[in-house]
Nucleic acid binder design. Structure first.
Lengths: 366, 366
DNA sequence: GCGCATTACTAATACGCATTAGTGATCCGG
DNA sequence: CCGGATCACTAATGCGTATTAGTAATGCGC
């Protein structure tokens, strides 16, 4: 009788028996007097098939509590399941010292919504230089540990994003992003919000309104212009290229002379778009002040967004606010939908109109 | 000859052959004409043992590139028995709408240091703790999914913390916490910082200094007193109970009369501790103003910590600042040390002296 | 009391990667 | 030219969980 050759057993070294490691399903099973598979079934609570007696379920759950068992996220993932983790990836630091570009307001909503849906959040920071999570060519790969991932900011390399999307990994981009086929995103509804601001001005009697915008092709900019023009049209006011002043450097090009020219032409309201720098509003605000306009008596101003922090005091600009926490929450809702395979949620979040104090009735025509 | 019974093969259903999934190490191996293990070795690049010929390495790397192979983080982490995840647990919301009491400054450091060390962060909040494990008796159990966990604030239930510590789960508490045997913590070095402030005052010629403190037994308070008294002793100044004024309600008990009494006795400098409310400093500041002290001409004031936001303007109090980002970073360093089993890191972080403008030379004795 | 369903589990995988013992080669000294 | 050392690699695990085929026990109808 040939004894099958007893090969040695390669594989991993035995765990250092020193300290008790986190409990596994196997330990739970032993304590409950059942098999590991049963523990998995009880905890899995799949709608599907397997029936478990109340008795056994209780024993298992007791053991789970007694040991403080928590499933290993990596193992759950590997076994082709989910681990209740949602990733949040920001290519720049999530908590910057420079609070200017902080994602904090979004995170407020993200955290709330995630918690409400039973997900925990994993923060992936892409900016890390050095360390194990270095910014290699596939720094994004580690997000696959989670069930899905939310991306903040447009710095995420398109190539890797495309890869994730192509592999069917649930991804949601915060901020509209159309150029990447199949990328889910949520964003603020700048079109409606801008339209509403124009409607407000029109209702106040303004008949000629000009939009000051920077020279930017980002959706955030074109959407505002789109909404602005739509608002004019709805109100039956003159639109066309003459209603839009586009400048790469508004602070320099929006001169007092030009402003006076518009006023002479009968323009009574000015609208600026919001950008990272807030330059359009700053230029408009400055020029109006320079020319000596008493706002809103002589003319009305409005801002399509929130003012830069340094101009946040008074007067509060008429315009709209981007509900950042709600945007974060909406992003999580969409991500959760993708993860669970449900129908996609609503990508657009409505902005809230801000009455402010820079818009008033149009001055009487003489 | 008995054929071993051919059992059926349970396990997972075969993958839907529909679309080609992303490549595995096995595919890379096949293309490169080597074994899967070799691929792992080439990519692993461990400092350890195994030598790979340049030829093979190139073939593997070429195949990796050709297929666009990206390692599966779930599998890597499972095999390596490390998730590279650090938990951050705050019993209150990590992202409170009220930014005042937020842990933001700590998180700045936590995120940076974690990223630098190749860890990702999992955020847990006491209120939610991932809907999966509702806030039951061991809401803390869920943190075990990380390799270790950082606790912010002293609201974490001692019993559960003890449990984690006893199980050998790496835990670091942000803020000193001695009452829990074996709990690792990092904190600011209030003793040295307070001592330094006293030394500064002594060097300015002050011979009698009084500490105003609240009636609190927290380490943060007793440490400051300790450092204060130590500072007096080093400078050869009178210490003892007379040098410390302790009050549960300083705003009411620190009367103008009492202040005048001290001044008459030759006290020329007053030091207040920082607390959540900032009451000690507020009371001292108020009383001094009421009595008409010209600070720092008539007397010097100092604050052992940072002023409350409403008193943050001027005058900037002489005292010290708690380097919150550095504290966060130090906490991560300690946690990382625990996780990897290295020697524990330094628990104390030095505060930085803030010259301020409320301390000056002692008035000449007449 | 015999087949057939149903119930309540368990055994045996698979997931993708890291690790280690083992295996031919090849080299080297004596 | 033989034993040992080194090199370059592969086979065979294990990590912890999810899934599924199988099975023993029980119920049920006729």
């Amino acid at each position: 009788m040939e004894e099958p050759r007893k090969r040695a057993r390669p594989g991993r070294a035995p765990a250092p028996a020193g300290r008790t490691s986190r409990p596994r399903q196997a330990e739970v099973a032993r304590l409950a007097g059942v098999s590991q598979a049963t523990v998995s079934l009880v905890l899995g609570a799949r709608k599907q098939g397997a029936t478990i007696s109340e008795e056994t379920r209780r024993k298992v759950l007791d053991a789970v509590r007694a040991l403080g068992y928590v499933p290993d996220p990596a193992a759950s993932r590997l076994a082709a399941a989910r681990n209740n983790l949602l990733g949040v990836f920001s290519f720049t630091s999530t908590f910057p010292t420079d609070v200017q570009h902080s994602y904090y307001p979004f995170l407020v909503g993200v955290e709330q919504e995630a918690a409400a849906r039973g997900y925990d959040l994993v923060l992936f920071t892409g900016s890390s230089t050095g360390g194990a999570g270095a910014a290699g060519p596939n720094a994004l790969a580690r997000v696959r540990l989670a069930d899905g991932c939310l991306f903040l900011g447009r710095h995420a390399p398109a190539e890797e994003l495309r890869r994730l999307v192509a592999d069917g990994f649930p991804v949601v981009h915060l901020g509209r992003r159309d150029e990447l086929e199949g990328l889910a995103w949520v964003g603020a509804d700048y079109i409606s919000a801008s339209q509403e601001v124009v409607a407000h001005l029109a209702a106040l009697g303004h008949r000629r309104i000009v939009l000051i915008r920077e020279d930017d092709e980002a959706p955030a900019s074109t959407d505002r212009e789109h909404g602005f023009l739509k608002g004019l049209e709805e109100a039956g006011l003159p639109g066309g290229p003459a209603a839009v002043f586009r400048s790469a450097d508004p602070e320099r090009e929006l001169t007092a002379e030009r402003l006076r020219g518009w006023l002479d032409e009968g323009v009574t309201a000015f609208v600026a778009e919001e950008t990272d720098t807030g330059d359009a509003w700053r230029a408009l605000h400055g020029a109006a002040h320079f020319v000596g306009i008493d706002c809103p008596r002589d003319a009305s101003l409005a801002l399509l967004g929130s003012p830069p922090p340094d101009l946040a005091e008074e007067p509060v600009p008429t315009g709209f606010d981007i509900p950042r926490p709600q945007l974060g929450a909406a992003a999580v809702r969409m991500l959760a939908a993708l993860v669970s395979g449900e129908a996609a949620a609503e990508p657009l979040v409505a902005c809230t109109f801000r009455p402010g104090s820079t818009a008033g009735p149009a001055p009487a025509r003489y």
